[in-house]
Every structure is written in structure tokens, then in C-alpha cells.
């Protein structure tokens, strides 16, 4: 599986993401700078976590208008897998590639801790390696992860199965509506999530729960 990770000014998890992808897929991802106007021919494009442009204006807002984002939009429309984690999720909502918005955490504080996630839709490449309803551990680290969508949008994405992951076991760290931690587009090839699966892929990090997401993307496993 070929993948590319896009780096923006202020990204800080791009190397973690590249290490995780290489570990699970066996192939080092390509690195793409935000000023590029085209993407290499890949199966997966990742927008990593960080604080692009210092979160100025709104988290992810400036990065979402970068030159490379037109290429990301084009790739998504062709069915290429697009994953946005943390700041990458914020960019995808700001770019209109995913519904809703990420607002300031309800508790107003930066949260850096481990949460539990429940996989509630396993029809996408990102979620197919999980079992239905599987609860897994995942770290979060963000200040603006409070997912919001208006009532109509919320009803639509819940009804269409676009909610991929929810915070489980009372671990919602940011006040997200319906405990939503990850959202898919209607086609299921674009996923945005606040938690960092790339930071729980080897025992030295305290667990390997995050690997399952990348295994699904790579088509390595098919859970029953």
C-alpha cells in the first residue's frame, strides 16, 4: 500500500504517522509539503496532527486553504483514502470534506490523556479490521476537539452510519456531541478523528490498539 503524509507549517505528528504507517504496512510513506499542487499516486493521503499556523483564526482553518488541499479534494473525489487525525480532522471539516466543526473543548483546557473508543461503523477501510462495537484504547492531545454539528446534520450522519468512533466508558474528553470521536464522509473514504491511533502502535508506547486502524487501511486483516 502506497501512502503520503502531508506536512504543514506547525504540524508535529507527521513523523509519528510516518513511523506507524511504515511499521504496519512495511512501506515508508512519501512526505508531501503543503505548497505542492499535486499528490503522488498513492492509496492513502494523511493529514497529521499538530498546530498548523498556530491554530490562528480557527484550528485548521488556514491549512485547509493551502495549495495542496485542492489536490486532496480531488483525490477524495476519486475514491483515494484520506485520513485526518487531530489537526488533520480540523482541516477536513474546515475544507468542507467532512460535516460539522471542531470547537474549543467544553472544559476549556488542553486534554492529553488516554481515552476509550468504540468502533460503531466497520464498513469503511479504516474501520473494517475492528469488530463491531469493539472498544479500544487511544491517546488524545488537543484543545479544540469538541465535535459539533447542527441537529439536521447530526441526524443525517447518525442515520447514514457516518459516525466511525465514539468515546466510550465515560471518557469523552471534550464535550463532543453524541460522544463523536471520528466521522466518515458519505462515501466512506474520508475519515477524520481527534484521537491519535499512530501513537499506540508498538509495545514501547504502552499498547498496540491503534494498529488495527492501519491494518484495515492496508487490507491486512479482515475481522469476522
Amino acid at each position: 500500500m502506497k501512502s503520503a503524509v502531508i506536512t504543514f507549517p506547525g504540524s508535529n505528528r507527521e513523523r509519528d504517522m510516518m513511523k506507524a504507517l511504515e511499521l504496519v504496512t512495511g512501506k515508508a510513506p512519501l512526505s508531501v509539503w503543503h505548497t505542492e499542487t499535486s499528490l503522488p499516486d498513492v492509496d492513502l493521503v494523511v493529514l497529521p496532527g499538530g498546530f498548523s499556523y498556530g491554530d490562528y483564526l480557527r484550528a485548521g482553518a488556514i491549512a485547509a486553504r493551502s495549495p495542496v488541499m485542492d489536490a486532496v479534494r480531488d483525490a477524495a473525489s476519486r475514491g483515494v483514502l484520506v485520513l485526518g487525525v487531530c489537526n488533520g480532522f480540523q482541516m477536513l471539516t474546515e475544507a468542507g470534506l467532512l460535516p460539522g466543526a471542531l470547537m474549543r473543548n467544553a472544559g476549556l483546557t488542553f486534554v492529553c490523556r488516554e481515552v476509550k473508543l468504540q468502533t460503531v461503523n466497520r464498513t469503511s477501510a479504516f474501520t473494517r479490521a475492528f469488530t463491531q462495537g469493539q472498544v479500544w484504547r487511544c491517546p488524545v492531545a488537543h484543545h479544540d476537539g469538541n465535535y459539533f454539528a447542527d441537529a439536521e446534520t447530526l441526524a443525517r450522519i447518525e442515520g447514514e452510519g457516518q459516525v466511525a468512533f465514539r468515546y466510550a466508558d465515560g471518557t469523552n474528553p471534550n464535550g463532543s456531541v453524541n460522544h463523536i470521536a471520528g466521522v466518515l464522509n458519505a462515501r466512506g473514504n474520508v475519515l477524520g478523528m481527534m484521537p491519535h491511533p499512530e501513537n499506540l502502535v508498538e509495545p514501547l508506547q504502552g499498547g498496540i490498539d491503534g494498529r488495527t486502524l492501519f491494518e484495515g487501511v492496508a487490507g491486512l486483516t479482515e475481522a469476522a
Binding site: L57, R58, A61, R65, T93, E94, P99, G100, A101, M103, F148, A149, D150
Partner: peptide, 9 residues
């Protein structure tokens, strides 16, 4: 519409 406001919110 394009940048200053996020019209979702």
C-alpha cells in the same frame, strides 16, 4: 464565506 467565518458554526 471562504475564510473569515466557518459558516457551519
Amino acid at each position: 464565506e471562504k475564510l473569515l467565518a466557518n459558516t457551519v458554526i
